[in-house]
Amino acid sequence: MTAPTPVILTEMELDALTELVNLGVSNAAHSLRELVREEILLSVPKVTVVSREEAIKNLGERDAKRLVAVHQDFEGDIAGRALLIFPETKSLELVRAIVGSDLSLDEIVELEQEALAETGNIILNACLATMANNLGRTLKISLPEVLHGAGREFFYVKPPPFVDDNVLFSFINFSVRQRNITGYIAMLLDLPSLATLKNLLTELIERTSQTAAVPPNDN
């Protein structure tokens, strides 16, 4: 263990967090279903907390694989940046899955940026809002931006990061129109935000164990 001391989330807290993110993506899936009028399933198997470098490594830095990311900043009691990341090669497939196969390749390419931005926006908004609501806080969430590049670039976007930033990191699975597309969902948090998140999760777990249920949106 080296200083600064990392904030460790307990298994229970990670489970609770995973549950919140799943709740969020399931809301997002609902929105997407209404948008594309197709059955869409979204799931997040397990959220882990990793360092920035580990996250970059997880994205396959060594392969120098080209990635595409939709990112949104958020601020409030917790501040940071949420990213939905896909291998660049999957992005067209994702767009194709969302908009259907009626469109030509050219049209898909033309729509790719907007469609990715909006799809990422729906998913990230849903995750962040659901988390914030359940944690009894509000977050100011920015509009999305689409980035192309290597994983490292995504995690070093200005404002300049802190050395001890942590990443809530998970796979996210899309299932739509017989296609299964796997991407990543990541939340870059500074140390105070992670500490706050840990506290909020603790409170949530206590509340839940008292009422034996996740409370409704009371904001």
């Binding site: 948008l35 908009v99 729509l111 931005a117 909006e118 908004n125 509000t138 977050l139 969430i141 920015s142």
Partner: peptide, 25 residues
Amino acid sequence: LKRLVFAIQAALTSRSSTILTHALN
């Protein structure tokens, strides 16, 4: 107007920002 109204509601209640593109809408 369903999605637009939902986005307005989300902005008012949870301060989220939403983009609706002609690509998907």
